[in-house]
Design a protein around this nucleic acid. Structure first.
Lengths: 221, 221
DNA sequence: CATCGAACTATCCAAAAGGATAGGGCGGTG
DNA sequence: CACCGCCCTATCCTTTTGGATAGTTCGATG
C-alpha cells in the first residue's frame, strides 16, 4: 500500500542532513512514558531526543529545537484528533518524516496511518529492543510498520468477535451512529444494528457505549 | 485518609526480607512501556525487575519468580477491572505491597485506590526522575501518592466540566442509561439528559458513546 | 436587594438505538 | 445434497437519546 517515498534520507525542507547523532522529536502526554523511552533510546549516544507533552508544544518546538531527523507522535495525545494531528505536524515539519506511536495496534488503524502518510507505526505493545531498530530504520528514510501485526495477531483476547463485528465495534468506539457505520461499511443500517446487538452480547455489554468502553479496556480496538 | 499500615517493611506473608537488590514485579500491557520503565529503574543496579503483561500472568509469576518487595500494576490492563484486579493481586501476594500505575490521575481515583489498600499511586504523567524515588519509598513500607495531584491539579485537562457533569460522565463510561444515572445520583432523567448534552458539547463529542471514549482517552474518568 | 451562575425540573418532539422475528445468499464440509 | 456458519436484509415495534425551550431554586457576589 502507498508506495510513496520509499527512501528519502531527509534532504529538502527543514529536515536535517549532516553528521553527528541523529535528532528525534518525541511527543507523548505521559511524561513517565516519554522520558523512559527517551532514556532508553538515547542510552547508546547515537540519538539526541527532544520531548514534548502535547501536539502544539511539539509543533512549536520545531523551530527552536529543530531540525530533527524524525518525529514520533502519540496517537492519543491532547491536540491529535486521530490522524488529523499528524497531518498538522506534517505540514509544519516539511520533509521531516513523521511516525505514529500508539497503544492501538489494530491492523486497520495501522493501514490508515500509513495511507495518511505516516513513515512508521510503533505500537506500544512492541518489544523495547525492536524500538531503536525501528527508529533507525525510519531515520534512514524507510517506512516501518509491524508486518506481523498486519497479518495474524488477532487470536489473543478475541472475545469471539467475527471480523464484521470487529469493524462495527471500531466505528462504535469512534462515536459513529449506526447510519454512519453502515455507510462506511456499505451495509444497511439494520445490519449494523444486528452486529451491535450480537457483539454487545459477546462482550457482556449492556449497550453500545458499554461495548465501546469494554473494547477499549481490553485492547480490542 | 486510611491510616492503615504506615510502615511495614515487608515482613510476614510471602514478602521478602533479606539483603541484595530489591525485587519489583511490574505489570503493564504495553511491553514498550513496561520494558523502558524497567530499564530505567534497573539502570543503577539497586532494583531487580520482573515484567508481565497481564494481571493473571503477574499473579502466576508470584510463585516462580517471587518473592518481591513491591508489585506495580497498571490500572488499565487486561484482567484488572479497575480496583478489583488489585484486590485479587493483594489476596495472592500476601503482605507484599501493591501499588497502582496508571494514566488516569483524577484525585478521586487516587483516593479510592488508597482507600482500597494500594500502597501507592503512580500517575504516568509523573516525571521519570520521581519514579525511582517513589518506588524506593514504597519498598521501604511507606505509602506514596502525589499530594500535588490530590489538591490543585484539575485545570489541566479538565475541559471545563462541572462536578455534576463529571459524575454523569462516570455513569456514561460504565454504560449506564440516563435512567440509571438519574437513580444513582437522585436526579430526574431529564436532568441527566441535560448534563449529557452539555458535557458532550464541552468534550466535542457527537454523542454519549463518543463522550465516554474521549473521557477515557483523556483520563477524565 | 438585584443579579448571576449552577443545578435542577418540566414538556414536547424527532431521531436513534434496541430488540424480536423471519428470512435469503453463499462457501465449506460431512 | 443437506447442513451449518457467517453475513446480510426486511418489517415491526418499544425504549432511549438527543435536542429545544422555558422556568425554579439556591447560594454567592456586587
Amino acid at each position: 500500500m502507498t508506495s510513496r517515498r520509499e527512501s528519502d534520507p531527509g534532504q529538502g525542507g527543514t529536515a536535517r542532513t549532516g553528521g553527528g547523532p541523529s535528532r528525534l522529536l518525541l511527543a507523548d502526554d505521559h511524561s513517565l512514558v516519554r522520558e523512559t523511552i527517551a532514556a532508553f533510546l538515547s542510552s547508546d549516544g547515537s540519538l539526541e531526543i527532544h520531548c514534548e507533552g502535547t501536539l502544539d508544544a511539539a509543533i512549536a518546538a520545531l523551530g527552536p529545537h529543530g531540525p530533527f531527523d524524525l518525529i514520533l507522535l502519540d496517537l492519543n495525545m491532547p491536540g491529535m484528533n486521530g490522524l488529523d494531528g499528524m497531518a498538522r505536524m506534517q505540514k509544519a515539519a516539511g520533509a521531516t518524516p513523521v511516525g505514529i506511536l500508539s497503544a492501538n495496534a489494530r491492523p486497520d488503524t495501522i493501514q490508515s496511518a500509513i495511507a495518511a502518510g505516516a513513515r512508521g507505526y510503533l505500537p506500544k505493545s512492541m518489544p523495547a529492543k525492536s524500538l531503536s531498530a525501528a527508529v533507525r530504520f525510519m531515520i534512514s528514510g524507510e517506512i516501518y510498520f509491524p508486518y506481523n501485526l498486519l497479518q495474524d495477531n488477532q487470536g489473543e483476547d478475541d472475545a469471539g468477535l467475527r471480523p464484521r463485528e470487529r469493524e462495527v465495534l471500531q466505528g462504535l468506539a469512534e462515536g459513529l451512529s449506526n447510519r454512519e457505520i453502515a455507510d462506511r461499511l456499505h451495509l444497511q443500517e439494520v445490519t449494523v444494528k444486528l452486529h451491535v446487538k450480537t457483539l454487545s452480547r459477546k462482550l457482556n455489554a449492556r449497550n453500545r457505549t458499554h461495548a465501546a468502553m469494554i473494547a477499549r479496556d481490553n485492547g480490542l480496538i
